[in-house]
Design a protein around this nucleic acid. Structure first.
Lengths: 198, 198
DNA sequence: ACCTGAACACCGTTCAAGT
DNA sequence: ACCTGAACACCGTTCAAGT
C-alpha cells in the first residue's frame, strides 16, 4: 500500500454515505456540506457529483438506508408469535421508538417533505414496508378476534400514527426519550384498551 | 407619498416575516434565503441582520407565530362545553389536522429540532400551551368518569401523539390529507374506545 | 435607530481536461 | 470509469460608514 492517495478512491460512494451519516448524527442535517464531506475524505469538491446527482440525492440515499435499518428492526421485533397481542405491539413500539431515540436526525430526514422525484417512489415503498409490520400484526389479531373488526389499513394507521407521533415528538425535542420509553407499556395499553373506561 | 423608496423601510421586521412565510408556503423552507427576501422587499442584503440576529432567528420567529395561530385554533375548538367528549375530541382533532393540512411546511418548522437557545424556551412554552388544550379536555372528562383514571399527562400524550402522528404523516406526504380528514371521526372513535373489542 | 456597500469565507453545480 | 481544477452564481454574516 502506498502513502499517497490514489487518483481513484475506489469506494467513494459508500465513503460519502458513511461520512455523511456521521455528520448528520454529530452536527445535524443543516451542517451537512458536500464540499466538507469531500475535504474530510480527501477528494476534490467536484467528486461527489459523480456519485450523487446533487445534495438531495445524497440525503435521499441516507433516508433510504435509514428505512432499511428501521424495517429490519421492525421485522425482527414482529417475529415473536408466542407473545400476546399486547406484548407483540409493545415489542414493535419499542423497536420503533428505539430507532427514533437512536437516530433522531435521520428520522427527521426520512420523514422530510422534500425528496427527489427519482427517490420518492422508493421512499414511499419503504414507508409501506414499515407499515406492513403493523398491518401484519393487526390482521393476525383480527382473525383471532383480539382486534376490533374493520378496515385493517385504518386500524393500522391509528396504531402507527400514535407511535409515529411519539417518535416525532422525541425527534423534535418536545418529549424526552427516557420518559417516552418508560411510559411505552402504558401507552400501548391505552391504545389497545381505549381512553374511555370499560 | 414619494415614488422613491425611503431610506428607512418603517416596518421591515414584519415585512420580512410576511415575505418569509409566503416563500415557506410556496417554495418550502429550503428555498428561503435572507438575501432573496431583502431583494423582494427592496432593501439591502444586510438589512435583515438588524432585525434578526441570524437566519435561524427568523425561522424561530415564524415557528412562534405558527404556534400562536395553532393555539388560537385549538383554544377555539375546545370551547364547546355542550358537546359530548367524543365530539369535543373530534373538534380538537379537526382543528389540529386542519392546521397541518393548511400549513405543512410551517408545521415542519415548528417541530424541527434546531432552534436557537434564545427561542427554545418560548417554543417549549408554546408546545405546552398546545398540549394544555388537550389536557383540559381530558381532566374535565376524567371528573365525569368519561376517561380512564390515571396521570392526565400520560393520557394527554396518547391522544396528542396520535394526532401529531397523523399531522406529521400528512406534512411528510406519507398520508394524503383528504384521506386523513375523511377518516378522522373513526380515528378518534378508535382512540377513545380502543383497538380491542369490548 | 436604522440602513448601505463592500468584504469575507463559505456554498452547490457544471464542465473541460486529466489519469 | 472516475476524478480534478477552475469557474459561476449564489449564500450568511460582519462592520465601517452613511442618513
Amino acid at each position: 500500500m502506498s502513502a499517497t492517495r490514489p487518483y481513484h478512491h475506489g469506494d467513494l460512494r459508500s465513503a460519502l454515505l458513511r461520512s455523511a451519516e456521521r455528520t448528520l448524527r454529530e452536527k445535524g442535517a443543516g451542517a451537512l456540506s458536500l464540499r466538507e464531506l469531500a475535504r474530510d475524505i480527501g477528494v476534490s469538491h467536484a467528486a461527489p457529483g459523480r456519485h450523487f446527482k446533487d445534495k438531495q440525492a445524497l440525503l435521499d440515499a441516507l433516508a433510504l438506508d435509514g428505512y432499511e435499518r428501521l424495517n429490519q428492526a421492525l421485522h425482527t421485533a414482529a417475529e415473536h408469535p408466542g407473545l400476546t397481542l399486547e406484548e407483540r405491539m409493545t415489542a414493535l413500539a419499542r423497536a420503533y421508538l428505539g430507532f427514533a431515540v437512536g437516530n433522531p436526525e435521520l428520522l427527521e430526514l426520512m420523514f422530510a417533505r422534500k425528496h427527489h422525484p427519482d427517490s420518492s417512489a422508493q421512499l414511499a415503498s419503504a414507508v409501506d414496508h414499515s407499515l406492513a409490520s403493523f398491518t401484519g400484526l393487526i390482521t393476525d389479531a383480527q382473525e383471532r378476534g383480539e382486534i376490533v373488526p374493520g378496515d385493517p389499513e385504518r386500524i393500522t394507521m391509528v396504531a402507527a400514527a400514535s407511535l409515529h407521533g411519539l417518535a416525532a415528538l422525541i425527534a423534535g425535542c418536545a418529549l424526552e426519550a427516557e420518559e417516552a420509553l418508560a411510559g411505552l407499556d402504558a401507552h400501548v395499553h391505552l391504545l389497545l384498551h381505549g381512553l374511555r373506561p370499560r
